[in-house]
């Protein structure tokens, strides 16, 4: 056990502490000055592009989380209760197979579909549905689509696992007692699957808000998310203190999401 604890201390806790300390330092010219100042955090509210990045990240992440849950739930439901038992495992496996595309390549593939001369524009033009190609790539729409694609697969898996655990007796009991199938779903099945949904939603939130690849490939440069701003500080400006402060903000947002969903999450059970 000692080696694992030492490893975590040396390569996670220590770097994290140094990063937190660095968020209080500042950059003068190219020179790093260790200090205790809250300038970097002050900048988050005074520099419009930083404030905007936080908003953009939150908006995209919340949109993605809600849409992904709404799309994945019916899919998991159909696979769990409508697909014949012997095909179930195959259909589930097929519905998450593209999960194993490399993450970078998956975002890139959406460019093929959504670019100006891409698959969607090309087929809609030849079907005569539109007369001008639609501008889809390099936009928030593209970023959200790329994210939703990934998380629908993830959530289908987690929600499916939840649904098949439910005994069909709950639903039968509700229907016997006079509930319509909608009422049985709304008042019995949905509350029972809520913990599973929330675990999935929390996971989606955490992975989505911290992701750099998808918005960088699909989002264009009109609006930047927090991870994009962090990478920009590292690359172009070498401003590690500001990047550190932004990283801690990112962690703060994840903590808020945790607090919001904590009553359904039982991470302490692990």
């Amino acid at each position: 056990m000692a080696p694992a604890v030492l490893w975590t201390l040396a390569f996670f806790v220590a770097p994290f502490t140094i990063m937190a300390a660095m968020s209080l330092a500042s950059l003068e010219g190219r020179e790093l000055v260790w200090a205790i100042s809250f300038d970097n955090y002050h900048k988050l509210f005074t520099q419009p592009f930083l404030t905007k990045a936080i908003w953009v990240s939150l908006q995209i992440t919340l949109t993605v989380t809600v849409i992904s849950v709404l799309l994945a739930y019916p899919l998991a439901w159909i696979i769990a209760f409508r697909v014949p038992k012997r095909w179930q495992r195959l259909v589930l496996l097929l519905s998450i197979l593209p999960f194993w595309t490399s993450y970078v390549v998956r975002s890139y593939s959406w460019l093929l579909v959504m670019s100006r001369e891409g698959v969607i524009n090309n087929s809609m033009l030849s079907l005569g549905l539109i007369s001008e190609p639609l501008q889809m790539a390099s936009s928030r729409l593209a970023t959200v689509t790329g994210f939703v694609h990934f998380f629908v697969m993830l959530l289908t898996l987690t929600i499916f696992a939840n649904l098949v655990q439910l005994s069909p007796n709950y639903r039968r009991a509700a229907v016997d007692l006079g509930a319509s199938s909608w009422q049985a779903f709304r008042h019995v099945i949905l509350p029972l699957t809520m913990p599973g949904i929330m675990v999935g939603a929390f996971l989606t939130f955490v992975l989505c808000i911290g992701d750099y690849i998808t918005p960088q490939i699909l989002g264009g440069n009109n609006e930047l998310t927090v991870p994009q701003v962090i990478m920009m500080q590292l690359g172009r400006r070498g401003d590690f203190p500001l990047a550190s402060a932004m990283s801690l903000v990112l962690m703060g947002l994840v903590t808020l999401a945790y607090i919001a969903t904590a009553r359904w999450l039982r991470l302490d059970r692990i």
Partner: peptide, 22 residues
Amino acid sequence: LLIAPMTVSYLIVGLGLLIVFN
């Protein structure tokens, strides 16, 4: 402590290590 890194974005893990190596 052992579970903690799971709750942090990969970007932050990478940035922390980059700062240390630098």
